[in-house]
Structure formats: structure tokens, C-alpha cells
Design a protein around this nucleic acid. Structure first.
Length: 555
RNA sequence: GCGCCCGUAGCUCAGCCCGGAUUAGAGCGGCAGGGUCCUAACCUGUAGGUCGUAGGUUCAAAUCCUAUCGGGCGCACCA
């Protein structure tokens, strides 16, 4: 529909098509029109009153695709022809199905996204939840726009903390506990060790030993890693999230010396207080620490090596790091180092940051102090609530109840996170995740299930229909369906899944309003309305899919 | 001290990138309603806001600029 307006206007005005498209908006009130073109920017070019410009243009456009085109003040308001709108939109959705909303803008281009990236030997807490969910959604959105997407889970599996855990394990560890409940056991150890400052130095030494290939250290580390990854994979299966690559910082342990050499050759390294650094003070970025005074490496060293390796391997058009905003400076630093090394692709590296979950006192959750919330617990608690809700209306087998409750719980958790703008910090409140009413994932799932229920119950075969008068509620719904493609595009451009989440919510609201005021089955508009219900359920499904949420037919 | 992010209804948040239509939107919670009817995890109505504060730019500011206050997060051997 928008293209129609763009084409009409581009014939008459001197503004470019893309600019016109950007300017077109939806009026604040449906009585004003379905789309509006504000004439302010034309006024600047033509040095004329925008009110008059609107009037002039309104007289010049003729098209049967619009019921009327009205100049109202500085705005040019378009009222689309309802029948045309309905026919076009519904048939497009019917034809494209799961592909509705997708496009080919990213064809032939590759995006690598680093996401989730939990630390081994530490519980998967809400901190990693955001990176996982947001990263997953950005990946979905990108690939629906035709990009080839490679998701990398870059595990935190190298660094001083593991030296500390080794020391702790040797002192308080228990082999059976390790086999049985690996992460919990290692985490207990980590918390104990962190409290005891006397073990810090020893921990650093053990990490050094690990980097030097000490047999015992390597053996312990391998065990910790293997067992942790096994547990993570179980969780990802529950979350229904897949990765193309499981990597980790340890993968670059042998490439770092080459990176350090390269930095030396390019004259970027400087010795300072016994450590090797790249000085970035002239860019206002402080110093980037490359090698510690004891000779061990740091995460910047590994990230630089990893980025270079990824470029060699994937020749990406964009490398996205979906990591919390507390690491902003780190990314700025090492992107700058890449640039100084002469890697032009460094500018295609993006840190897509997100706000933190804060505890009830508004403070950061610190794993070191044992203050964390386990992902499993969040899922289980939400699931139990979903079960109760299901049992109110239906008796299901234990297995079916469990699987349905899980899907609802995940919808609640995913949506609860994604509906917020990613950069804001959020107070973590379990009650918010287990809420099923209002602007929540379950509300949207429920709407979908209702739509599906109508389609199941409709007995008549759909007939060809001629459209007569389309109700206002139907029209608003169709207009919303029609805008989906633009919404996906916008979500991609700003890398903001919350745009899709908000869209799906508004769509669900419009559908529920329609549902309550207009009967489908048995009405004289049955065939058309069934088409509308079908289309709505399809678009709800597509938008939830972009968020990583699976729909269910019954609730 | 310096840098980044955030401050919108009692609570949780959209809207800010890209300024516009004399009514700034949701949800939760409050109050009042809706069941012989396609799933009431729903719908309808209502109360509730000087968009942190002060300046500035503009015909027009929640949106842009500056200052200021409040909260969060960073700022070399953690990641």
C-alpha cells in the first residue's frame, strides 16, 4: 500500500522515493486517514506554505486504489480502498505463508553473530539469558531478510577464574559431585574461592600453568569444560535455541602469540608496568591490555585473535557481538586496535549491547558472590504456573501437560525480555516473568490459539466471496497485517527485537477486539472473515517465530 | 574525577534514532461493567502524567543542543 503512495508522490514531487517512504506515517487517529504524508519538507524545498502544497497535491492524484485523498492542514491523508486493501493483503499472506514478512535485502551477505557465551563452570543465569534471547531473535530477523547467519556460542572457557577453580577443586572438590551436578558443584567451589583472598595468587599461577600446557591443569580444565558444555546443551535444547558453532576463548590459545607478534610488527605494542599494552589514550579509550606482567594473556588478546580468525574463515559482512553494555569500553578498544592493525573490516564489527538485569536493590547480579538466579529455576517456576492455568480448563496427560506448559513458560520468558528496549536495564522480578495477562507472551499465544480454534471449528468449505462493506475493526486489523514487512525491516535496521514484540502485541489486541465484536462462523461474511482469521494467525505465528517463540494450537 | 546508559501514570515499560495533526500510549494494580454466543490467559468503560529540573534551538520539543540533579555500569593485569 505504501508503495502505491510512494509511486504517486514521486511522480509529482522532487523528493526521492526512499525519502518519501520514510516520511509516510500513520495518522494518530484513524478518522484522519490510513496513511499520511506530511508536507513540511516539501515546504522547505518549494518555499511554500505546506498547507497549500497539500491542497495542490491532493488535486493531482487520481487512483481508484484510494477511497479519497484529503488535504488536512499540512498533511495529505490517504484513505485506502478497503476492498482493494483486503484482497491484496490477504492473498499475499495466503500465498507467502511462513515467508510473509521476509525479503531478499540481505541476499548474498553474511552475518556472524556471537551470542549467549556463558562461562563454563558457572551457572547459566539471567545475565546470559538476555544475550541468548536477543541474539537469537536478531539472528532470526536477519535470516528472514535473506542474510546468511552464523551463530557462534563463544564460551568463556579460558582465563584466570579457571585457575582459581582448579585450586578450589583440589582443596574442596569431590569427584562424584562433579560428575553428578557439575556446574553447581564447580560454582560452589568458585564462590568459596572468591571469598578467600589467599587463594588468588595460587589461582593465577594455575592459570599460567594451564596456558603452558601443564598436564594436571589441562586434564582438570578439559573435564570442567566437557561437563559444563553437556549441561549447557541440555538447557539450549529446552530453550529451543541452536548454534552453528560452539567455540570458546580457549580455541585461540595457540593463536595469541601470533597476534602479539603482529601487534609488535605493526608497532602498536608498548611496555607498561611490566605488561604489554596498546595505548589508545589519544582516542579517549585508555589502554588496551594485551599481556599481563606475569606473561598470561587477557580477553582482549583472545578477542582480537578470534575476530581475525573469523574474518579469515567467514569473510563476514557484519560481525555482531551480542554482549552486555558493561563491556562497551572493551569492544570499543579492541575494534580500535583492529582498525590500527589495518583491518578495514574492523568497522563491520558491531557491539549490540543490552542493559543488565539488576536485583531488587537495583544492583548488578554478581556471580562471584553467589548472587545469581538459575535459569532452570526460572523455567520451572513459570512452568508450574502454566500447568495450573491449563488444568483449570482441560485434562491432559502428564506428558502433554508438561510440553504445553513448557512452551507457554518459554513464551512468557522470551517475550518478557524482548518486549523491552534492549539497552535499558531491567529490575529482575520473577513475578513479571510468570505473569500471563496483558502484554505478555502467553497473551499472544492465547490469541493465536483462539484464531486456530475458529479455523478448526468452521465446517463450511471456504467459498469465493465478493467483498461488500468491511467493518472498521476488520480494516484496522488488515492495515496492521499489511505493515508487517516494514516492521521486520525496521527491527533489523535498529537491531531491536522489541519492535516485533510490540507489533505482535498490538496485532493480538486488534484481533481480540475483532473477535469480540464480530462473529465469524455463521455470519454472512464467514468466508472472508475466515480468511482474515487465517491471515492473522499466520502473521502472529511469523512474528513470534522471529522472537524465537513457538506457537501452540490449543491453550 | 572521566566516559557510557537510563530517568515518561502508584508499579513495570513503549514512544526518542528520523521534532509536527490543540486528546503523550500500553500492561499491571484501583474503581465500574460484560458468560444460553467461535477458548473470560479475553473484552468494555473510568480515574491516574507540569514526559527528572532549568535554559536554548525551532513556526512546532517527551523527541535535538547545553547545564544540572538522581540511578545504573565501566575506567590496566577479571571476563
Amino acid at each position: 500500500m505504501k508503495e502505491l503512495i510512494v509511486n504517486q508522490l514521486s511522480k509529482i514531487t522532487s523528493i526521492s522515493k526512499s525519502e518519501i517512504e520514510r516520511l509516510i506515517e500513520v495518522p494518530p487517529n484513524p478518522e484522519l486517514g490510513d496513511y499520511a504524508f506530511p508536507c513540511f519538507s516539501l515546504a522547505k524545498i518549494l518555499k511554500k506554505n505546506p498547507v497549500e502544497i497539500a491542497k495542490d497535491i491532493s488535486k493531482k492524484i487520481v487512483s481508484d486504489k484510494f477511497e479519497k485523498i484529503e488535504a488536512k492542514g499540512p498533511y495529505l491523508n490517504f484513505f485506502v480502498n478497503r476492498n482493494f486493501l483486503a484482497l491484496e493483503t490477504l492473498s499475499k499472506i495466503k500465498k507467502e505463508k511462513n515467508k510473509y514478512g521476509s525479503s531478499k535485502t540481505g541476499k548474498g551477505k553474511k552475518i556472524v553473530i556471537e551470542m549467549s557465551s556463558p562461562n563454563i563452570a558457572k551457572p547459566f543465569g539471567i545475565g546470559h539469558l538476555r544475550s541468548t534471547i536477543i541474539g537469537n531473535s536478531i539472528a532470526n530477523i536477519s535470516s528472514s531478510l535473506g542474510f546468511k547467519v552464523i551463530k557462534i556460542n563463544y564460551l568463556g572457557d579460558w582465563g584466570t577464574p579457571f585457575g582459581k577453580i582448579m585450586v578450589g577443586y583440589k582443596r574442596f572438590g569431590n569427584y562424584n559431585k562433579l560428575r553428578k551436578d557439575s556446574i553447581k558443584h564447580l560454582y560452589e567451589i568458585y564462590v568459596k574461592v572468591s571469598k578467600d583472598k589467599s587463594m588468588e595468587e595460587e589461582g593465577r599461577q594455575w592459570f599460567k600453568k594451564l596456558e603452558e600446557g601443564d598436564k594436571e591443569a589441562v586434564h582438570l580444565w578439559k573435564q570442567f569444560r566437557e561437563l559444563s558444555v553437556k549441561e549447557f546443551k541440555k538447557l539450549y535444547k529446552i530453550l529451543n535455541i541452536n548454534f552453528d558453532v560452539y567455540s570458546g576463548e580457549s580455541e585461540y590459545k595457540n593463536k595469541m602469540s601470533a597476534t602479539i607478534e603482529e601487534l609488535k610488527e605493526k608497532n602498536l605494542l608498548k611496555e607498561s608496568e611490566g605488561a604489554l599494552v596498546v595505548n589508545l589514550e589519544e582516542y579517549g579509550l585508555g589502554v588496551c591490555l594485551i599481556k599481563k606482567s606475569d606473561g598470561a594473556t587477557l580477553y582482549a588478546t583472545r578477542d582480537i585473535s578470534a575476530a581475525i580468525d573469523r574474518y579469515k574463515r567467514y569473510k563476514f559482512d557484519k560481525l555482531i557481538y551480542e554482549v552486555g553494555q558493561e563491556q562497551k569500553l572493551h569492544f570499543k578498544q579492541f575494534f580500535k586496535v583492529l582498525e590500527l592493525m589495518g583491518y578495514g573490516w574492523g568497522k563491520n564489527c558491531i557491539h549490540v549491547d543490552h542493559g543488565l538485569y539488576l536485583d531488587k536493590d537495583g544492583k548488578k547480579f554478581a556471580t562471584r558472590h553467589g548472587k545469581t538466579i538459575f535459569m532452570e529455576d526460572i523455567i520451572n517456576e513459570t512452568k508450574e504456573l502454566a500447568k495450573k492455568e491449563i488444568q483449570k480448563r482441560e485434562k491432559l496427560s502428564a506428558k502433554e501437560l508438561d510440553s504445553r506448559a513448557l512452551k507457554i513458560a518459554l513464551a512468557a520468558i522470551f517475550y518478557g525480555d524482548l518486549k523491552n528496549h534492549r539497552s535499558s536495564d531491567m529490575i529482575f522480578d520473577i513475578d513479571r516473568f510468570v505473569a500471563f495477562e496483558g502484554n505478555t507472551g502467553p497473551y499472544i499465544l492465547y490469541t493465536y490459539a483462539r484464531a486456530k480454534s475458529i479455523l478448526r471449528k468452521a465446517k463450511n468449505q471456504p467459498k469465493k466471496y465478493t467483498l461488500s462493506n468491511i467493518e472498521d475493526k476488520e480494516k484496522s486489523l488488515i492495515l496492521k497485517l499489511e505493515s508487517f514487512q516494514a516492521v521486520v525491516q525496521q527491527a533489523y535496521e535498529s537491531l531491536s527485537p522489541n519492535i516485533i514484540a510490540n507489533y505482535s502485541y498490538t496485532l493480538a489486541q486488534l484481533f481480540n477486539e475483532f473477535y469480540h465484536s464480530l462473529p465469524v462462523i455463521g455470519s454472512d461474511q464467514e468466508s472472508f472473515r475466515l480468511d482474515l482469521v487465517d491471515a492473522t494467525s499466520q502473521v502472529l505465528k511469523n512474528s513470534l517465530a522471529l522472537l524465537g517463540i513457538e506457537t501452540i494450537e490449543k491453550m
